[in-house]
């Protein structure tokens, strides 16, 4: 996925949720654009810079899981 920006969703470890804005800022420093922060569930949504080989490279301290933002449809 190098050089292709990828929309992602990331969950924050429960113990780090009070620092979710700091974690989002760390992702920005890695070149990500952040589109939404959900505080109840501790989620950060954004788009990678596209320079990473894997979304795992964005797993900064405090992030529990990071996954590609998939398309979902009506069933």
């Amino acid at each position: 996925m190098a050089n292709i920006p990828v929309n992602f969703i990331a969950s924050v470890e429960p113990a780090s949720r009070t620092h979710i804005d700091t974690i989002a800022e760390k992702l920005r420093e890695k070149g990500c654009s952040i589109t939404n922060v959900l505080r109840i569930n501790g989620l950060i949504m954004g788009c990678s810079s596209g320079t990473e080989c894997s979304l795992e490279e964005l797993r900064v301290t405090g992030i529990l899981h990071i996954e590609e933002d998939r398309e979902v449809g009506a069933l």
Partner: peptide, 17 residues
């Protein structure tokens, strides 16, 4: 989901929140 019937995980999770 849009009027075309599609959406994304990020929008669904925002809806859940």
């Amino acid at each position: 989901l849009s009027n075309a019937g599609s959406g994304s995980d990020s929008g669904i999770l925002a809806g859940m929140e």
